[in-house]
Design a protein around this nucleic acid. Structure first.
Length: 569
RNA sequence: UGGGGAAUAGUGUAAUGGUAGCACAACUGCCUCUGGAGCAGUUAGUCUAGGUCCGAAUCCUGGUUCCCCAACCA
């Protein structure tokens, strides 16, 4: 287990918190329960794209294996061909890899174990612990009883072993229609745990499986299959989410009846995040109803969406580490995720200058055709990132927000008569404001102080503000997509009467700015390259970006105390 | 009207009978060629009622609240 694709920085090398699951692993190692082995697995069903909640589980399982010198398998739990697709398999492989984890040659599929599972089912039948039931679906649930009422035995519960064997074989051979029969475990129809009331092990499904094709027309249920998969792979700690706690007695029962290798199932709480939804069903709905562009829409909490948004794998791993592991439901503040993203990106992203809402500035005392190349530091947090040249000339663009004709108190930026520093360039003073007939400011006329080249004055004076800028002639035009929360409510699931989570979708989660300018140094950068636009935030090149039409996605803003100040007033 | 889990600042977590700590958020300052970063500080917590104990977030008893379970989904 190694981070092959990502460098580990300080933020990650900090000590791993010992959660209750790691405590179990440590205790097991101490007692030699598993002979020192630690084998975990990440077992997704390929029926959707992975999201940040899965990342928590991935980092837990792979992280434990890494920490204790064990292994973590990637296993597709592909037991339901009607919901699963190859596209999802590929996306999941890509996402886990991108997150920085390596399963080496241990890529497994539950469907590869179908024959073994079948054989074990036959064994259970021979033991008299499983039977073929002819009850229809609605009848099965009727016989199951309720929370407070015990169930009733199926009329087919006491078939002979021979009859069960014959019927199960014929189920496998495709002699019966879908839904006509099931194989059920014979446990206890009066158990207070409904999962133990003769759970279905196999159902008939004449469906084409994405890997086994039409070879099988019976498919194992989760409860039957999952423990067997874990057993086959000699998993030591089978980590799953809280809702499977009720299933653990069944997990244990199947393995005990068969007398085969028996991992320990441990449950932890899934992740909830403010301002987002996490269920695969709802995410699928957003995609299918075109409420987002696709699974990798940068507003989606999917791994692919976050990748496109510009989140780095390291920042997601850092986040997973910070949220911890527990056994109760909690909702993590989205701001913590953003903090983790900023923390990592601050240390790793090269800085460039870009102007999102351009305001033309003419330096009246600057020579007409002159262009200077000025030195700019690539990353003040990382000396090894070096420096680059940025062109400066008579006509520039600055940010509209960086000028105010009638500035309020504490507005440090440019205003008439005021001097500011242009980053890495010169001090300029605004002398004249030019407006169109409607009164909109269209241009600023400024003078520069030639003695301040590079951004320092010989007399030691230092303006309160430093602005970012681009030279008009050499700047590249770009589209910039500004993203915000997809939902307006902290908990979109909590919908009022007659409303759904979709009613909480934000109308300004995406703002497209078409007339942005970026410095020329980014011209040939590949898709997904991450930058900090100085004073604005972190941005990355969208995969749809071309050299003819540059497109950037805003990952997250910089912390902005000025905006905060304004909002308070 | 059954069974299974769980409750620590606004949020996420630590403390495993011995000073309730950390992070995010919020708020103050300092510093700064990014109103970024960094530095220093402030606010704020053991669900509840009893009990055991020199001492309880932790152990015991009762209560409260929340989550999960009645798919041929996982």
């Amino acid at each position: 287990m190694s981070d092959v694709t990502n460098n580990t920085t300080e933020s990650e090398s900090s000590d791993q918190r010992t959660d209750f699951i790691r405590e179990i692993v440590i205790a097991d190692n101490k007692s030699n329960k598993w002979d020192g082995r630690v084998i975990t697995r990440f077992p997704p069903e390929p029926n959707g794209y992975l999201h940040i909640g899965h990342a928590k589980s991935i980092c837990l399982n792979f992280g434990i294996a890494q920490q204790f010198g064990g292994k973590c398998n990637l296993r597709f739990d592909d037991t339901n061909p009607t919901k699963e697709e190859e596209e999802y398999v590929q996306s999941i492989i890509q996402d886990v890899k991108w997150l920085g984890w390596d399963w080496e040659d241990r890529l497994y599929f539950a469907s590869d174990y179908f024959q073994q599972m079948y054989d074990w089912a036959v064994e259970l039948i021979k033991q008299g612990k499983a039977y073929v039931c002819d009850l229809a679906g609605d009848q099965v649930s009727l016989y199951r009883g309720s929370f407070t009422q015990p169930g009733k035995d199926s009329p087919w519960r006491n078939r002979t072993v021979e009859e069960n064997l014959d019927l199960f074989n014929r189920m496998k051979n495709g002699e019966f229609p879908d839904g006509s029969r099931t194989l059920r475990a014979k446990i206890d129809m009066a158990s207070p745990n409904l999962n133990m009331r003769d759970p279905v092990m196999y159902r008939i499904m004449h469906a084409t499986h994405h890997r086994t094709g039409d070879k099988w027309c019976i498919y194992p249920m989760y409860d039957w299959a999952h423990g067997l998969e874990d057993s086959i792979e000699k998993i030591t700690h089978s980590i799953c989410t809280l809702e499977f706690e009720n299933h653990r007695p069944l997990y244990d029962w199947f393995l005990d009846q068969l007398g085969i290798y028996h991992p320990q199932q441990i449950e932890f709480a899934r992740l909830n995040l403010t301002y987002t939804v996490m269920s695969k069903r709802k995410l699928l709905q957003l995609v299918q109803e075109k409420l987002v562009s696709n699974w990798d829409d940068p507003r989606m909490p999917t791994i692919s969406g976050m990748r496109r948004r510009g989140y780095s794998p390291e920042s997601i791993r850092y986040f997973a580490k910070k949220i911890g592991i527990n056994k109760f439901n909690s909702t993590v503040d989205f701001a913590l995720l953003e903090h983790c993203v900023r923390e990592v990106l601050n240390k790793t992203s090269p800085r460039i200058m870009a102007v999102l809402k351009p305001l033309k500035v003419v330096i009246t005392n600057y020579p007409e055709a002159q262009v200077e190349e000025l030195d700019a530091v690539n990353n003040p947090e990382d000396a090894s990132a070096g420096s680059r040249k940025v062109p400066f000339s008579k006509t520039l663009y600055i940010e509209q927000d960086d000028f105010m004709e009638n500035p309020p108190k504490k507005f440090y930026r440019l205003s008439p008569g005021k001097e500011v520093r242009l980053r890495y360039a010169y001090f300029i003073t605004c002398n004249e404001v030019i407006k169109d007939s409607a009164g909109n400011i269209t241009e600023l006329r400024c003078t520069y102080d030639p003695a301040t080249r590079g951004g320092d004055a010989p007399d030691g004076r230092s303006p309160k503000a430093t602005l970012h800028w681009v030279a008009a002639d050499t700047a590249l035009k770009a589209q910039v997509n500004l993203y915000d929360h997809l939902f307006t409510k902290e908990n979109p699931e909590e919908a009022e009467e007659g409303k759904t989570f979709k009613d909480a979708i934000s109308t300004d989660s995406l703002k497209v700015l078409e007339n942005c300018f970026v410095e020329p140094s980014v011209k040939t950068a590949p898709a997904l390259t991450r930058y900090q636009f100085e004073r604005l935030g972190y941005f990355c090149i969208d995969p749809d970006s071309t050299s003819e039409k540059l497109v950037f996605n805003r990952t997250v803003t910089l912390k902005d105390t000025w905006t905060k100040l304004q909002k308070k007033q």
